[in-house]
Computed example of a mutant assay.
Amino acid sequence: MDTEAMTARKKQLRTELRGRRSRTYQGEVGGARRAREAQQLIDHAAPLLAQVRGAALAAADGGDESREPLVAAYHPSPLEADVMPLVDELVAAGARMIFPASAGRRLEWITWDGLSPFLPSPGRGFGPEPDGERLGPDALADAVLVLTPAVAVDRSGTRIGHGAGYYDRALSAAGADTHVVTVIHPDELLEAGTLPRGEHDVPIPVVLTADGLVRLITIEGS
């Protein structure tokens, strides 16, 4: 598929997938479903929480607060899977949380203390961000876990985001031992090969939904 055709296909898919998400999660009934699923995300994220808890204990035993496990998350839009209750659990497990902010064509990362309110972002199309320490665009190199948003992911590991390529660029800076997990609604995990993948699209190894934590068979160039 050439670049122009792939861009058009991705735009069409985003429109279709966002429409389905809106129909499912808008309104009182949709909001109640989203809240229930947020609690299910916590249940299925037990291995991730255990990983962070273990890293935090190791840092405490070593007396080195600078080695507290760094975890990246994001503030979801009202229709995205609600990852914030899980974020609260990660904070309780000992994570040092960071959230994205716009920095030109790249994301930079800002620390969150687990308590302070989020503020409106000056970046167009960005969700609220914390008023913490800015760590720059390469902070993911030190992260043990990165939670990313998406419009959808297919079972060959292809992720379709919101179209600006921010997370593809950001994930290129992640460390070799960083665990990358994309959080989506259950019906946004699609059959392998459903989504087109370009040369700059970073494959996703693991997806978390309200139905479970799923390790994907990532196929290069699919």
Rank of each mutant, 00 (worst) to 15 (best):
L135F: 06
D82A: 14
G161C: 13
V87F: 02
T148A: 10
D154V: 13
F126E: 00
L90N: 09
V91Q: 09
P128T: 06
D154P: 15
E129A: 13
D131P: 07
P122N: 05
P128N: 06
P130R: 00
T148L: 05
W109S: 00
L135C: 08
E129P: 03
F118G: 04
P137G: 08
T158W: 12
G165W: 10
G123V: 04
D142T: 13
P137Y: 02
R106K: 13
A101G: 15
S77W: 14
E133C: 12
A81P: 14
M97Q: 06
Y166L: 12
P85G: 11
G94H: 04
P69Q: 07
H162P: 15
P120D: 10
E80A: 14
A143T: 06
L135I: 07
A72S: 02
P149Y: 05
A164I: 08
L86R: 05
E129V: 07
A93N: 15
V146S: 04
A101Q: 09
A93D: 15
V144K: 07
G132S: 07
D154W: 08
R134Q: 07
I160T: 12
R96D: 02
F99C: 00
P149F: 03
L70I: 10
G125E: 09
I110L: 12
P76K: 10
A101H: 09
A103R: 06
R134W: 03
G104K: 10
W112R: 00
E133R: 11
L145S: 04
S121E: 10
Y167D: 04
V146R: 01
I160H: 15
R96A: 08
G94Y: 04
F99V: 01
L145M: 10
S77M: 08
L145W: 04
P100R: 01
A93Q: 12
D154H: 15
L145N: 02
P100Y: 01
A103C: 13
R96T: 05
L107F: 05
P137V: 03
T148K: 01
A95E: 01
G104P: 12
A139Y: 01
P117D: 09
E108N: 08
P128E: 09
H75M: 14
G136C: 05
G157E: 03
V87P: 00
Y167N: 02
P122W: 03
G104S: 14
R169D: 06
A103V: 03
A103S: 10
D82G: 13
